[in-house]
Design a protein around this nucleic acid. Structure first.
Lengths: 337, 337
DNA sequence: AAATTTATCGAAAGCGCTTTCGGTGAAATG
DNA sequence: CATTTCACCGAAAGCGCTTTCGATAAATTT
């Protein structure tokens, strides 16, 4: 390793000059700059990030918060894809991601506290809901922040056009002749969940289609298992829907499983459209018709929004809504005559 | 915020005493300890992690390295599950995870350099292969390290019993009457890939089954797409196998897709067994017979192995092989008469 | 040649914390 | 009462780095 002092000793300059040389200050001659840089390379010198942070008040780290409330963690392919794209964008600018917990050596603390302790330059919250106290606390803090997949007027947010997404799905189904369209919803405490329900309702309204209460059933927090259960409820209905719009691909896969288990065929007996377009969507049987969320763009925009705030040292409250696409595959088909 | 100095001013004690009180030293009376702790709570004091690290040489961070060589990143459900379990285990001990890149503010640097710069206490490498220069460099360094899903005698490693896994799959297929058993392999530069091939070969050998060269086809780096392509090659063979052991569930899903696309049925026409037992495995159609890897245990063991080294300040080179299970579902069945 | 600029460097303070080591008064011992 | 122990506290150095500000010598300008 070696420190800046070693470098000073070796080259014969002061640590001041060494530091300046390494940081490319203008008041050090090219010659000495070259010598110092060379010596640094020779000894494999690397600046200590903690010392730097301490003295510059800049840590070049971004804290990421996954809400663990619903046990999704970083396992959900959608959030996962977003964080991956976010990571690529931020690391290009020199930031590292740090996953902090609520545990600091046996001291229980809030995320905000933990992030302050780590002195992160900014925060991204990936999956959460309005009810989460921790997220609200983060938003109210002064640390630059961007929130993904959730709405808020108190900070920068970026999320998919879930309303349109819901409409796209329903309209597609309608055009295929479906009139009995049910919805397996994501939990309404999440903005994504409720926006998709809203999109579903609006589209149904516009089309003059009635919505029986039993046609909206909760799939909980977007899990496969809950999607399956929700579908089972739907299947038990006296007037079974001919199509169902599922608010997430994972849930859709669960739903499909439920449908298959009772011996029904997709799309002949029942059409299903999902939401997300996870990688697997186009490979499973039947290939899933779904509303694609542009995770790449979401992640990038989130990264840009955050870094902009960090760099300019001022809060901005942008609401960035990313368009979605309907991807038609084989899980939807014309209604049975 | 506030620093230790503010706390000293407020309470009237020296910063030394404040620090000691906060760190529960024995040479500060209970009374003053209480006062200081109270004052700290009142002002919402939080120690600055960077300052602490600087002075203690302990950062309470663990660097995680995903090889980006094969473009899997953190998107693969298997690695993802491992990192999640690893995270839970380490955060319980007070460590935060930091995802470092190879980019430090436009300076291109190795992972080792980056980790040294960040002064991480330990390193976990999640998905990589022997050929990766960066990983080798990490292993040769003096920083505590644990490697997952890869073999090495130079550091602690933890991975699944891939050999047995391969055998389990083949034997299962054999018992169902299959004799023409092919293998869609993971890339042989990965230990997991080659060990599963080995398991396949050994089992076939024991059973006295011949292995035509064309029966082992590479599925690349475990992706769905590559699995699909591999299966297409298999399907084009003059003597088509009646069963195929696929070295990963993602690939298996791709393979199933390929099979369905040519109008064949699973398991009636063709049996397939996967590897991993990802969450979706039991929901897709057909429900996938697969070799389950115990990601929870892998993650935990890796965490323990790493923390042990950090705490004891000495390198240990354990090889921790985690057993696997065959989970029989519906993608395998008796060979057609 | 005197007066200014300019280029180059370093002393020193500071970032927030830990830890060694010594000092004080009170309690315990003889 | 003199001496030793003990409990409690603080001065100071140090962790590795940045940054301000002043100093010096060389280069320009008059």
């Amino acid at each position: 390793m070696g420190t800046i002092y070693d470098l000073a000793k070796i080259t014969g300059f002061s640590i001041t000059t060494v530091s300046k040389a390494l940081n490319n200050y203008s008041d050090v001659s090219e010659k000495t700059k070259a010598k110092i840089v060379q010596a640094a390379a020779d000894m494999g010198y690397l600046p200590n990030a903690h010392a730097q942070s301490l003295s510059t008040k800049r840590s070049w780290t971004i804290g990421v918060m996954f809400s663990e409330a619903h046990g999704v963690g970083m396992m959900h392919p959608f959030f996962n894809a977003i964080i991956e794209s976010f990571r690529k964008a931020t690391e290009q600018q020199g930031y590292d991601l740090i996953f902090a917990s609520r545990n600091l050596r046996n001291r229980d603390m809030s995320y905000l506290e933990h992030f302050r302790h780590r002195a992160v330059d900014g925060i991204v919250v990936i999956c959460s809901d309005q009810m989460d106290q921790h997220v609200q606390e983060l938003i109210q803090s002064t640390i630059p922040i961007v929130v993904v997949d959730m709405d808020s007027t108190d900070c920068s947010v970026v999320f998919s056009d879930n309303l349109t997404g819901g409409e796209l799905a329903v309209n597609h189904l309608y055009q295929l002749g479906h009139r009995l369209i049910a919805h397996i919803a994501g939990d309404t405490t999440t903005d994504a969940g409720s926006a998709r329900i809203e999109g579903y309702k609006q589209a149904m309204g516009h089309l003059g289609l009635p919505i029986p209460d039993e046609y909206i059933v909760s799939g909980g927090f977007f899990s496969v298992e809950e999607g399956k259960q929700a579908m089972q409820e739907l299947l038990a209905l006296p007037e079974r829907p001919t199509a169902v719009f599922v608010a997430g691909d994972q849930m859709a896969i669960g739903a499909i499983d439920a449908i298959h288990e009772v011996g029904l065929r997709i799309p002949e007996d029942l059409s299903v459209v999902g939401y997300d377009d996870i990688e697997l969507a186009k490979f499973i049987t039947p290939k899933l018709t779904t509303v694609r969320q542009d995770t790449d763009t979401i992640g990038q925009h989130a990264a840009n929004l955050l870094i902009e705030q960090i760099v300019n040292k001022k809060r901005v409250m942008t609401t960035d809504i990313i368009p979605v696409d309907l991807i038609v595959r084989q899980s939807t088909g014309p209604v049975k005559a």
